[in-house]
């Protein structure tokens, strides 16, 4: 069990740098040396669009897509959640969301209810909204 837990909620989409920066902060938790930090990352609102698979960052702009960063979270065993209500609203099915199976990640993006997100916020030591 980690010493500290941080809950990230990401609502921004691909137009802005925010979602990537948010994930970088979450990844930054994993290299804190003074104590053990466990981040949890949730996507809600239009932010659920960040977990779509087949984002072609490299082929288009020569950069890592947000999806690549989500995969890095999964590879690092970070729990990644997406709000099911917003997925449904935008027509995103579970088949359309990314995973990191090619990197042998056990974790996958988990569609959840708002109740689960609220629970994550309640249980965390710190909450960060992006």
């Amino acid at each position: 069990m980690a010493d500290k837990n941080v809950f990230f909620l990401i609502r921004k989409t691909a137009k802005e740098e925010v979602a990537s920066i948010a994930i970088d902060h979450a990844l930054g938790c994993l290299t804190v040396l003074e104590f053990e930090v466990e981040p949890m990352v949730a996507f809600a609102g239009d932010g659920v669009l960040n977990v779509l698979k087949e984002q072609e960052g490299m082929d288009t702009y020569g950069v890592d897509s947000v999806e690549e960063r989500v995969k890095m979270l999964l590879m690092s065993d970070v729990k990644v959640l997406a709000l099911k209500d917003d997925m449904d609203r935008l027509g995103i099915t579970e088949e359309m969301i990314t995973d990191a199976k090619e990197y042998d990640a056990e974790e996958a993006v988990t569609p959840v209810s708002w109740k689960e997100i609220l629970k994550g916020m309640e249980e965390a030591d710190m909450v960060m909204f992006f």
């Binding site: 941080v6 925010v18 902060h25 930054g28 104590f35 710190m126 992006f130």
Partner: peptide
């Protein structure tokens, strides 16, 4: 980023303007 996460987690009050 690690510096900030450590600072935020050891602070009495922390806020990110995301």
């Amino acid at each position: 980023m690690t510096w900030f996460m450590e600072a935020a987690l050891t602070a009495d009050a922390s806020l990110i303007i995301g």
